[in-house]
């Protein structure tokens, strides 16, 4: 993690662009907690890049002073991965929503996860498409009435935590946008983690989602047990699957260490005796008849 030399306050990271979110949006809480985490770790403004996809939450980078990329719908992870591979010196943090990450971009998640790509992925999960004004999302409950499911959603939702655990993520956590301190802690842990770190942040949409509301989460939130062994994959999966009982577990589910993509690529370059001044005539001469 590249840090600044001067002490920082969270307002020091705020850009001049005011957030475009609706009043009461859960994403404000995430923004504040993430900036606190940045300040706490004195993250360098110049060496940090926030990369996002498309959706309400994907506007995140505009509100922060660091470098950033606002990419295409569903492509936040492969863009962020390409940046991190070529510039491992940078802090690269990916942001997006549930539709961006698990519907249109869902095909990328298994691969970015299994490669243990050195990224922090902060997903703001509101179980609805907000930017297009209220359509069913991949984390919407079955039966949910939205503008495209007037008779109730026919599909089962994905379980983002179980999804990432199954493909081999090395840091998996869930937080709730109103619990600012926990969001800050889990995001900090994710940024400090070596490898792919996933933080799913429940971030209610008061405008378009009338089912998964701040009130409803009061009932379903459930702290990860204090004695949970975060290196136990089966135990982590069991907690992730509490969603089936209508529960919303929050806290750190899983954290282990294994070689990261950047480390593996470094090994390959070492095996090939990588040299910035390599003489290309040595390649050309291999093709002399």
């Amino acid at each position: 993690m590249t840090t600044a030399t001067e002490p920082m306050k969270s307002k020091d990271y705020k850009s001049t662009v005011p957030p475009t979110w609706c009043p009461g949006c859960g994403d404000f809480g995430v923004l504040n907690a993430v900036l606190k985490a940045f300040a706490d770790k004195t993250m360098s403004i110049d060496d940090t890049v926030l990369v996002s996809g498309i959706g309400c939450s994907s506007r995140f980078p505009y509100f922060v002073k660091t470098y950033g990329m606002h990419t295409a719908h569903g492509r936040v992870l492969p863009v962020a991965a390409g940046l991190k591979m070529s510039r491992p010196d940078l802090n690269v943090i990916a942001f997006g929503g549930d539709g961006d990450g698990f519907s249109i971009g869902g095909g990328h998640v298994p691969h970015v996860v299994r490669k243990n790509t050195d990224l922090t992925y902060i997903l703001m999960d509101n179980s609805i498409y907000g930017l297009t004004k209220g359509q069913v999302s991949p984390t919407s409950q079955v039966g949910m009435v939205t503008t495209t499911t007037p008779y109730g959603a026919p599909d089962n939702p994905v379980n983002p935590l179980a999804f990432c655990l199954t493909y081999g993520a090395t840091y998996v956590a869930q937080a709730y946008s109103s619990k600012s301190k926990q969001v800050q802690e889990l995001v900090t842990g994710a940024m400090e983690h070596k490898g792919f770190a996933f933080v799913n942040i429940i971030s209610p949409c008061p405008t378009f989602n009338k089912i998964n509301t701040f009130d409803s989460y009061k009932e379903s939130l459930e702290e990860v047990p204090a004695d949970h062994d975060t290196s136990d994959l089966n135990a982590a999966l069991k907690i992730a699957l509490r969603a089936k009982e209508g529960k919303t577990p929050i806290g750190l589910l899983y954290k282990v260490e294994r070689p990261t993509l950047v480390e593996r690529l470094t090994e390959i370059r070492q095996k090939a005796k990588g040299d910035d001044n390599f003489d290309l005539n040595k390649v050309i001469d291999q093709y002399i008849p």
Binding site: M85, S86, L265, I268, R269, K271, A272, K273, G274, D275, D276, F278, L280, K282, V283
Partner: peptide, 8 residues
């Protein structure tokens, strides 16, 4: 990789 590049 010989020129210190990455391929995936």
């Amino acid at each position: 990789p010989k020129v210190n590049g990455n391929l995936v």
